[in-house]
């Protein structure tokens, strides 16, 4: 298991607790599922450590609208790589709701999905392989394609806007 963020391996600094599990001491950084966050919101926000929320398929990221600035991390669970709901959650969180914290893909996160996740706003990946292998997979995945048709919030320039720039430049030259 290794976590890759911004072209580096990072340490696991978060304890993820499920719906029923005991909470760690107040100083620990904690991630809880959305349902538990909704139920225990006030006490969770009163803890000393960092707080994150995990979204599972079927959850509504909109439920976090009032609390985004209190969350350092949101993990989106892909229980199977074929379940693509998390891609929409990523775009809604980043592009619509303006979440700026860490957005981590967890679960069945495979090399060949990483580029799509990145395009949907994810910036960290919890992979089931170790260290350098994980880092190399992420690096390879992110550089496989260099042309993008869709405008998403990832900052990549689309083919369309490059075409427009080129046409504008040609137009200037011609005149």
């Amino acid at each position: 298991m290794a976590i890759v963020k911004n072209d580096s391996l990072i340490e696991q600094e978060w304890i993820t607790v499920d719906a029923e599990g005991d909470l760690p001491s107040s100083d620990e950084n904690l991630i809880v599922p959305l349902e538990r966050f909704k139920e225990e919101r006030d006490s969770l926000l009163g803890r000393n450590g960092g707080l994150g929320v995990q979204l599972n398929p079927g959850d509504a990221p909109e439920d976090l609208a009032d609390d985004l600035d209190r969350l350092s991390i949101i993990t989106v669970n892909f229980p199977a790589y074929t379940d693509g709901r998390g891609y929409s959650y990523g775009r809604v969180l980043r592009e619509r709701m303006g979440f700026t914290g860490e957005l981590r893909a967890v679960g069945d996160v495979l090399r060949d999905q990483i580029l799509y996740m990145h395009r949907c706003g994810f910036d960290s990946y919890d992979l089931k392989v170790e260290g350098e292998v994980a880092l190399n997979k992420v690096r390879a995945a992110l550089k496989e394609m260099s042309v993008y048709y869709q405008p998403t919030g990832d900052g990549r320039v689309t083919a369309q806007s490059l075409r427009e720039r080129r046409r504008a430049a040609l137009g200037q030259k011609a005149s």
Binding site: T82, G84, Y87, L115, Y116, M117, C120, Q150
Partner: peptide, 14 residues
Amino acid sequence: RQWSTFHPEFTYLP
């Protein structure tokens, strides 16, 4: 065609 090609959000639809 262009909009749908490698659409990152819609590559693992139901």
